[in-house]
């Protein structure tokens, strides 16, 4: 079944969006001669890659999620006294996958389809706001950074303000349009 190879099912190409909005944020801040480090910190806290003095691409993220994700990573289980390496090395063999479990697979690909919708709406809104701001001479950085931050906020903010997916982007888009026409 597909879920056994969970790590295999990763789509590429999303790094291009990070590239794009990092550029937009710096370019926008250069044009308006405004501070940017606070907004970049928001991006970092949302888990975006960024190189610092240390030289490796890394994120800040939050310590709690880091702890949880590494607690269950089985490469690190030996440090907790569990030795998965004592079993023979698992080798990829497509013949192990003769009978897909359709329910799980359906859920799995439904999530994939939803992530396509979420991502498309998010990046399209960011793109539109950046271009609109550039056209009218407004600052785009706060909008871009807030959009990215609420999409993937550090623990426990995500539980307090559940605006993940594209829900938060719709809120930001509505707020932007209201501000654009002078209602807020």
């Amino acid at each position: 079944m597909y879920v056994e190879y969970e790590g295999l099912w990763v789509a590429g190409g999303t790094w291009i969006f990070t590239f794009a909005y990092m550029y937009w944020v710096w370019e926008d801040s250069q044009r308006h001669k405004k501070r940017v480090w606070i907004w970049l910190l928001l991006l970092l806290l949302a888990g975006d890659p960024f190189s610092t003095l240390v030289g490796e691409v890394r994120t800040l993220g939050d310590p709690f999620s880091t702890f949880v994700s590494n607690f269950y990573r089985y490469e690190y289980l030996p440090s907790r006294g569990i030795y998965p390496y004592l079993v023979p090395l698992f080798k990829y063999d497509a013949s192990h996958f003769v009978e897909p479990i359709w329910v799980l697979d359906t859920i799995f690909f439904w999530n994939l389809a939803l992530s396509l919708v979420d991502g498309t709406v998010t990046y399209a809104v960011m793109f539109w706001i950046y271009r609109d701001c550039r056209k009218v001479g407004e600052r785009a950085t706060p909008w871009i950074c807030v959009m990215r931050f609420i999409q993937n906020p550090p623990f426990p903010i995500g539980y307090l303000i559940p605006l993940g997916g594209y829900t938060g982007q719709i809120f930001v888009l509505v707020a932007y349009i209201l501000r654009k026409f002078g209602y807020i």
């Binding site: 190409g13 999303t14 291009i16 590239f19 794009a20 550029y23 498309t120 990046y123 793109f127 271009r131």
Partner: peptide, 12 residues
């Protein structure tokens, strides 16, 4: 994702 992202890069 690659096509959409690259389109945005070019347009901006």
């Amino acid at each position: 994702w690659s096509l959409l992202g690259t389109y945005m890069l070019v347009k901006t």
